[in-house]
Design a protein around this nucleic acid. Structure first.
Length: 180
DNA sequence: GTACAGATTGAG
DNA sequence: TCAATCTGTACT
């Protein structure tokens, strides 16, 4: 079963989308090859009220503009001058909410947002890409069931500067392997 | 125009 | 523990 995720999937509440993205597959077409990876870790960022978000306070910059797009668009940006972060905008247009893809299972484990983009060969040319229409990258539901008990909620990473409240909040979702 | 810090990673 | 290296922001 392969179902391309539609607009309705992305326009829901950001925390809901972040959880539901776990276990879905991201498909990247490079030439004639398909790279496919299961999403195993996500993080939610809810713009105006999230101090850790680039859109905190409702500010708009060249870099974070895609965060304001309607759900289903790619928000990709460079951190530390070296690493790309793959985000998917959520909610409706004008709301700076997004989900950061932190880890994928591509056969190999891409256990960090920088690695995810390196494996998928993503760069700025994907900025603002529409995942519901693009022919080079999209998401699929393969009917894999994800139980609530497999979803691990933890605090987010790398944002200690946002202060004790925002760095402690459990907006990071990890898919546990189904061995258990 | 200049200075500085960041949603990270890999090497030492 | 720290450097790599680009972009936006807050200064001069």
């Amino acid at each position: 079963m392969r179902k391309k995720l539609k607009r309705e999937f992305y326009t829901k509440d950001t925390l809901t989308v972040a959880k539901e993205l776990l276990g879905k597959y991201i498909v990247r077409k490079i030439g004639k090859k398909l790279l496919e990876g299961k999403i195993i870790e996500t993080e939610a960022y809810i713009g105006p009220k999230d101090k850790a978000s680039h859109a905190y306070g409702g500010k708009i910059t060249k870099r974070n503009l895609a965060e304001y797009f309607e759900g289903g668009h790619i928000y990709i940006y460079l951190v530390y001058g070296m690493y790309w972060q793959l985000n998917i905008s959520t909610s409706t247009a004008g709301k700076p909410e997004c989900v950061l893809i932190r880890a994928l299972d591509l056969g190999k484990i891409a256990d960090g947002p920088g690695k995810v983009c390196r494996y998928l060969k993503l760069n700025k040319s994907f900025y603002g890409e529409d995942l519901t229409r693009s022919k080079r990258i999209w998401l699929e539901d393969r009917g894999e069931k994800v139980k609530q008990s497999q979803i691990l909620k933890t605090s987010r990473v790398g944002i200690d500067y946002a202060g004790p409240y925002w760095s402690k909040i459990k907006w990071r979702f990890v898919l546990k392997s189904d061995k258990s």
